[in-house]
Simulated assay, not measured.
Amino acid sequence: MSTPDAPRSGSRAAAKERTHVGLLDAAATVFADRGYGAASVGEIARTAGVSVGALYAHFPSKQDLFLALMDRRRVAEMAAAREHLADGLPSALDALERQVTDTADDERAALLGAEAWLYAVRDPGFGADLAAHHERLRADLLPLIRAERERRGVTWALRDEEVAAVVLGLFTGLVQHRRLARDTVPADLYGRALLALLDGLATGD
């Protein structure tokens, strides 16, 4: 008989994955150029070179597509953070500082972040989804925070979950400030601030 189905299935899976990635890449371009509200699924599909039906086969709605785009960035950033922090915070400072400056200096990333916040404030449903996204970020960061506390052998004045929230807030705030006024956020500020924060949290117990 003829060839087995496995290679054919593998080819279909690879094509599906290429379409998925292409849609996310196209969405990043269109959302950044048009803004979330003005962006249409039709334009995203055209930019990706697929039909609107193909887009909906991967993402049930424009909101799902936007959230998937943000989640892709979360996964990539947290994978990098885990790698950088494997030997503790001091050895990771240069890489973490580059994450701040690279994010702030990336116009597309800045626009997508601004769009997410603006739409979340205007739309309670999207706001709830964005809050869930931030909770996933905190959950990803929590083991790294706990590992750093244990490496230092100290007790902190805040719970690990609270430290994770503050660390993420510091990252977001410095990215925004650097985007607006580059000179106010030197490249090494995030690292120095993180060290000062964690050193100051130690209770001495």
Rank of each mutant, 00 (worst) to 15 (best):
G42V: 14
V121L: 15
A76G: 13
H133R: 13
L111P: 05
R72L: 06
L96A: 04
A86M: 07
L111V: 11
V41E: 08
R34H: 11
R98D: 12
A54K: 07
A132G: 09
S51M: 06
G49N: 08
A76R: 10
T29L: 13
G37I: 13
L130Y: 02
E107K: 09
A80F: 13
A57I: 02
D25M: 07
L67M: 13
A45S: 07
H133T: 01
E77L: 14
A68Q: 09
A68T: 09
A54R: 14
L85N: 06
A120I: 09
H58L: 03
D102P: 05
A32R: 00
R34C: 07
L65A: 09
R74Y: 10
A28D: 08
S51W: 12
E97I: 04
A132H: 03
P90F: 03
G42L: 11
D106K: 14
R98F: 00
D102C: 00
Q99D: 12
E115P: 06
L67G: 05
R122K: 10
E83Y: 01
L130D: 01
P124L: 06
R34L: 00
G88N: 08
A131E: 13
A48V: 03
Y36R: 09
G42S: 12
A110E: 04
A116M: 08
A57E: 09
L130N: 01
R74G: 07
R74W: 10
A79T: 15
A79Y: 05
A128R: 14
Q99Y: 00
A26R: 10
P60H: 06
G37T: 13
R108Q: 15
A76M: 10
L23V: 03
V50C: 11
G113P: 11
A95N: 04
A104M: 05
A114F: 11
L93N: 12
S40K: 07
T29I: 15
R98S: 08
A92N: 03
G125K: 14
Y36F: 13
E107R: 13
R82P: 02
A68I: 07
L112F: 00
D33C: 04
A120G: 10
D33T: 05
A68S: 14
L96E: 00
A81R: 14
D94H: 11
H58P: 01
A95G: 10
L85H: 05
A27S: 02
G35N: 02
D71T: 12
A79D: 06
L112Q: 01
A92Q: 09
A132P: 04
R72H: 10
E83D: 15
E115S: 14
V100D: 03
A92G: 02
R74F: 07
D102T: 10
A79I: 00
A39D: 03
G49M: 01
S40M: 03
A120T: 11
A80S: 14
D102H: 11
D25R: 15
A110H: 04
L65P: 10
G53K: 15
E83I: 06
F66I: 13
H58V: 03
M78N: 15
D94V: 11
L24R: 05
G127N: 05
L67P: 00
M78Y: 11
L118R: 12
A28C: 00
A131H: 02
G37E: 13
D105L: 08
A81L: 11
G37M: 09
A48R: 08
V50D: 04
A92P: 07
V41T: 15
F31E: 07
G113Y: 02
V50Q: 05
A92R: 13
A45L: 05
T101I: 06
L96T: 01
E77R: 13
L67C: 10
